[in-house]
Nucleic acid binder design. Structure first.
Lengths: 224, 224
DNA sequence: CGGTATCCCCGTCGATACTG
DNA sequence: CAGTATCGACGGGGATACCG
């Protein structure tokens, strides 16, 4: 665990655990539903596996999560104490989206956007069977093309061509699509401005935005 | 500011600012009402003045607080963005008091307890005029005696004898008094067990607990 | 897939002294 | 009261390679 503040204040005691770099983002991922080591890594691409392993052990010791091994597969599951960190994460996110200034270019990671969109596919809104969406980002140097394969059971994301027929081609400036995702811009506005372009049969094109629920922070009201 | 996570997620952006050591405790102090450099230091006794100064500048740059100089005295005042961190601090404290295990001896700082009690004197409950409370902690090595002088206008705390007549002598094990303060033990139980002893005329002794509202986290329900 | 092992750098933080 | 100045260590964490 982190260094002690030597205070009995519960805020200080909580922060002794939570103020260490990456810790709360690991918890965010667990709350978002990831429970396997490599899935956690996908949501934390710049965190080294060594450090992730260390953080998981710390959180286990602190009683925030449990490691369960079933059939040789290990899962990280939040305890009751861990689940109760949801209000902390929500309060932080609500504050962040209201008060953190503009995002830097380095913050705009298509990998993370796709990973987050993957979690927010509204399966009921997407046509049954397999649907392939191809993303093309105009303002990204490497890995400008991504594919999302929405199946009946699960959703896959990759950055190499799976060789499947594409149902929707979405061309966008990454910053503009993220702006929609975070609720700063409506689909309507982004499509009108041309920052986001959906290429598909018109009926599909109109329905496409409903396939995804946006980031949970998109609904947070912004300061006047 | 702290190192970037290179994520657009608002939780990550918030934590870039807030995950640095001491930062959220500085904000806690500001929310609690301290606004002068040396008052902040009183609530953060193990933080070096250099680091406090640095954190205040960072928070200023982040738009969380403003420094105001009036008549040569500087005050640190939370902005609207800063005030909105209250839910974050509250969520952290509520989690901490529910889920952080027992406090270590090093966490039991009489200086911090007295400073916190000072902020929670219910002036209306204390007799008018000057009231002097003398605290004596049986289990503290240095500075085992403290004085709290409750005046009509303000409350002072010190660890050297002000030479005033004492109205109440409170003898306690520090751990037991903190347990009362945090809502883990009732006054009734602590007094009955002898962990806390109030020496004063009986009418004063019975009213004494009502002189202080406890820590704001005392009312948080505990896990079964 | 699910992690460990190592290595080393650099920045944070703590301690202390000092100033207007 | 309200901070600065200086300095050193120490260890967190980033990078990379590797293993079962």
């Amino acid at each position: 665990m982190g260094a002690s503040y030597y205070q009995f204040c519960p805020v200080a005691k909580a922060m002794e655990l939570l103020d260490e770099r990456w810790t709360l983002l690991v918890i965010r991922e667990l709350i978002a539903g990831s429970d396997r080591f490599n899935d956690l890594r996908r949501g934390l691409p710049r965190m080294s596996p060594t450090l992730l392993s260390k953080r998981l052990k710390q959180l286990q010791r602190a009683g925030v999560l449990e490691r369960r091994v079933v059939d040789g597969e290990s899962r990280y599951v939040l305890t009751e104490a861990g689940l109760e960190l949801r209000p902390v994460v929500e309060a932080l996110g609500a504050w962040g989206i209201r008060w953190v200034g503009d995002l830097g270019d380095r913050d705009l990671d298509p990998k993370l956007l796709l990973w987050d969109m993957r979690r927010h596919v509204d399966r009921a809104a997407v046509p049954a069977g397999r649907t392939v969406v191809n993303f093309e980002f105009s303002d990204v140097s490497a890995s400008r093309r991504w594919w999302m394969v929405i199946g009946d059971e699960d959703v896959d994301v990759c950055d190499d061509d799976p060789g499947l027929e594409v149902d929707v081609l979405l061309r966008a400036r990454l910053r503009d699509l993220i702006s929609v995702w975070m609720g700063d811009t409506s689909w309507r506005t982004a499509l009108f401005s041309g920052g986001v372009v959906i290429e598909a049969p018109s009926v599909v094109r109109r329905r496409f935005p409903s396939w995804f629920t946006l980031s949970e922070f998109a609904v947070v009201p912004r300061p006047a």
